[in-house]
Design a protein around this nucleic acid. Structure first.
Lengths: 316, 316
DNA sequence: TATATTTACGTAACTGGTTACATAATTAAC
DNA sequence: GTTAATTATGTAACCAGTTACGTAAATATA
């Protein structure tokens, strides 16, 4: 049983490297076969110079997809062998104009046969496969350019984790979590106020009974986030979004986003037209989230909380 | 225009390396994303140890396709992080038995999610391509195992070059070459004898007129090999294969082989039943060639040439 | 039983690339 | 016309692998 069959795609990089090594391995011997005094790694540089034009180090690097120090080293080696000549650009003293010497040009002739033989050998291998490696690489290059592997893995992670997240209605057994989660973030940034204790100790009496709602985010059945919709006695607003708290242990799982959306959805289903909230600008991620949820800044309302220095609303 | 589109398959190795780098690049960040303290390069080693069994350095190396120093280094690093423990084998003092520590085993649990997310991300990319990279690599591995790239290129070279080789009948303008090619090899190994000069200076009179034939190998229209079929006045043999010479400048192009086959074919077409030849055992490549052409050693004939110490025949 | 060969493994040096950093020249901006 | 930013390049250090080599232990052989 092949190692890579059991280990799976996680080792794709490793497997690719081994194949690369295997293909590269023979390269030096192939040049020798054609009696050409050139290192395989010089080839891309050699190739882009072979039309005769002089080019700068960085231009070559960009063209062949290497870093410039790599090209710089290769040019140094080729220069030592007399295959290329370097010349400072008169017009721009930084530029090192590189071009093939007559000796280098000789090789362009010599290499033609090798070039066609290698091409044919590879085409022959390709003809013997059902999946085209060359085209597959091309497609991967394209897709990875669109979105890196890291980003794709991040999205997979998020998708998987969001399956473990459920948003449920408040039940008495969540009171502990409701209080603890809020207490945690409030006391790291501010001081608990009297109004906090009232609502957190008795959500039943202060929120639910008055026509408010609380939603709880469960991660693997454990409450990790909470958010309340408090019924407002105000002609302008139906509900206040408040007491939103997400445990820092589950960061990066978009739980705040899911919770926020669920709360807004709940308000909408209750026929609400406008939601209001109060926060503080030092809570940047929170303000960001509210913004992403569609809330806009408003001014001029009075508030019982000392820590409030920004007010926002959302029109449904 | 993409560099690789213009440069062709010759840069396959280079292109593969770039893709490998791109895929590997994100690997470290991915481990970080899952809060796993492990270098991507450790993964293959980690994986083969994850079933719990202790293994030797070389066994691991063989399994994952690395060299043993590579595994040795990786184990050293993992050991430093407390992920594996090393223990000398009691029964065999050379063996260094390596296994996961409890801390290492913890990671096997933690890594499961990452493993499945990466697999999914890669599967997702694959689903977006028309050519399956994973399978293509597999096929290439298989085909390169059958025959290395070097060998395949060699065969292409030979095939191409043999197209430049033509075997033609002797014409007077080849007399110079006939003499020069033979003189060259004879005088490097032996001394030219009287019988040599007679035949080489006047092939018309000494070979062709008596019912013999001479074939000439042209490489790019230049005579580079010759071989004579000399009519024998003998009840046992029809022809003697003699004066075979190939220029050392065209070695490795199977010209001797092509010439030999052409001469045998010529004899056959003339209704011959047996061909005879004389040579010397210090000419190893020549003896080898005769052998490959089907000649067998015989003994007991007399010969005018001092340098002859082996005699061979071929029954058609 | 002494000796030669094979095996396991570590260390050192090399390879073909990279990133990080320094410097000099050019160009842009106030 | 200074000053700041950008560009071109080289050098140094690193990285993940390799090969080459040396040593010790085990095994085969005469």
């Amino acid at each position: 049983m092949n190692f890579f069959d059991t280990v799976g795609k996680m080792a794709l990089g490793s497997r690719l490297r081994l194949l690369t090594d295997k293909i590269t391995e023979d390269a030096a011997a192939i040049y020798k076969l054609y009696d050409i005094d050139m290192h395989p790694k010089w080839f891309p540089v050699f190739y882009v110079l072979s039309n005769g034009a002089a080019k700068t180090i960085t231009a070559i690097a960009k063209e062949i997809g290497h870093s410039h120090p790599s090209v710089s080293k290769i040019i140094g080696e080729m220069s030592g062998k007399g295959l290329v000549k370097e010349k400072k650009d008169k017009a721009d003293g930084r530029r090192n104009m590189v071009s093939l010497t007559p000796k280098g040009k000789e090789i362009t002739e010599k290499i033609k046969d090798q070039y066609s033989d290698v091409n044919n050998a590879i085409e022959e291998i390709s003809a013997g496969t059902r999946n085209d490696l060359w085209k597959a690489i091309e497609e991967w290059e394209f897709l990875l350019e669109q979105q890196t592997l890291l980003r794709r893995v991040q999205l997979q992670k998020k998708a998987r984790e969001s399956q473990d997240v459920k948003i449920v209605d408040y039940r008495p057994e969540y009171q502990q979590a409701f209080k603890a989660l809020n207490e945690q973030w409030i006391s790291t940034w501010f001081k608990m106020e009297a109004a906090d204790y009232k609502a957190l100790d008795n959500p039943q009496g202060y929120i639910l009974k008055n026509g408010g709602h609380i939603l709880v985010a469960l991660y693997k059945e454990v409450p990790v986030g909470v958010c309340a919709l408090i019924k407002m006695n105000d002609p302008d607003y139906d509900f206040e979004l408040a007491k939103m708290a997400v445990s820092p242990t589950v960061q990066g799982k978009s739980i705040g986003w899911m919770l926020g959306n669920a709360v807004i959805e709940k308000a909408r289903s209750l026929g609400a037209a406008k939601i209001y909230l109060e926060s503080n600008t030092i809570l940047k991620p929170a303000i960001n989230l509210y913004h992403k949820l569609g809330f806009q800044k408003v001014v001029g309302r009075i508030t019982p909380y000392e820590r409030c220095n920004i007010q926002m609303e959302l029109t449904l």
